[in-house]
Amino acid sequence: MINATYTIALMGNPNTGKSTLFNVLTGLRQHTGNWPGKTVTHAEGEFVYRGIAYRIVDLPGTYSLYSNSADEEVARDFLLFERPNITIVVVDATALERNLNLVLQVLEMTDRVIVAINLIDEAKKKGIRINTKKLATKLGVPVVPMSARNKEGIDELLKTVDAFVHGQLHPTPIAVPYSVEIEQSIAKLLPLVKEIVGDDYPARWVALRLLDGDTSLLSALNQQPPRLTKEEAPYACCGSVKSV
């Protein structure tokens, strides 16, 4: 066992190649197959890149983080309570539109995100071209095109991870503009959220979830003991969690 310094969460829609990427990064042999839902439990592995040890967690594939199912709850709670240092959202280049939904939702929860556009080779075959630079600018987080099964783009991804943990990246995530009605309600709710839930959770996102009537979120927050103070926070070493 390596004593991992940083935790990386792998997220994404079902069947986008998360497990393939996980296997490539860790050298493990998590079962892969072309059907949604085959990763029923989450897998963990480790790897070292440029002298830094990482713990990587392959979360179940989800279409959203709205907790319609146990899988989504697992993924959501992991982001919320385990607070991975980096979240890699694996998206399917051949169905970018639907996959971006999840990216946008993740960006509401954390800005420490890398978007890995997987299956870029399949997309090319279908005549789909993605301007990843422009997408990165629009999303406000790094975007890496890759093909996990051909082991293309892995190095680029790892370099981005490395840059992230060294504080060389400054994400400015896009915020989804909601309808006037919703935005007004968010504005009204925000002070109360900050007062009751505290600063440890993404307040705008919590407010949205509450407006949506997400009771499972509240009960999850309620079961969680009040967060550790900043000094004790497990990943606060190396000054990289909030100081970027």
Partner: peptide, 11 residues
Amino acid sequence: AVLRRRLLDLG
């Protein structure tokens, strides 16, 4: 409700 949400998530 759960299915409606799922369908919305799927597009």
